[in-house]
């Protein structure tokens, strides 16, 4: 059984070595994309809580806004990867 697969495995190895399934640019793009997705998910809860607080007390607008966009730092940090790649 193993002998039968062996040529296939070496063939696969050779291929990945020559051209990776995901190129550097694509990997960087992916990391930014996933980070943005995570930031959006985090902002969802914070945003709705901030809206609730602002509805009760309008002076909380600035605080709410700041807290809501804080997870954006995730995306900015992920952008670093793009330049490193």
């Amino acid at each position: 059984m193993i002998e039968a697969i062996e040529p296939l495995m070496t063939a696969l190895q050779n291929e990945t070595a020559s051209s990776p399934a995901i190129t550097e640019g694509a990997a960087a793009a992916l990391s930014v994309g996933i980070a943005a997705f995570a930031a959006g998910y985090a902002e969802r809860g914070i945003g709705s809580a901030a809206m609730g607080a602002i509805a009760e007390d309008e002076s909380l607008f600035v605080n709410g806004l700041i807290l809501t966009v804080l997870p954006e730092t995730l995306v900015i940090l992920a952008l670093v990867v793009v330049f490193a790649a």
Binding site: G45, A49, G52, E56
Partner: peptide, 18 residues
């Protein structure tokens, strides 16, 4: 949905206004 976050933020604000 993120309804609990909204409701609880408002409720907590009201709570502190008691």
């Amino acid at each position: 949905g993120s309804n609990p976050e909204y409701v609880i933020a408002r409720v907590r604000a009201r709570r502190s206004a008691l």
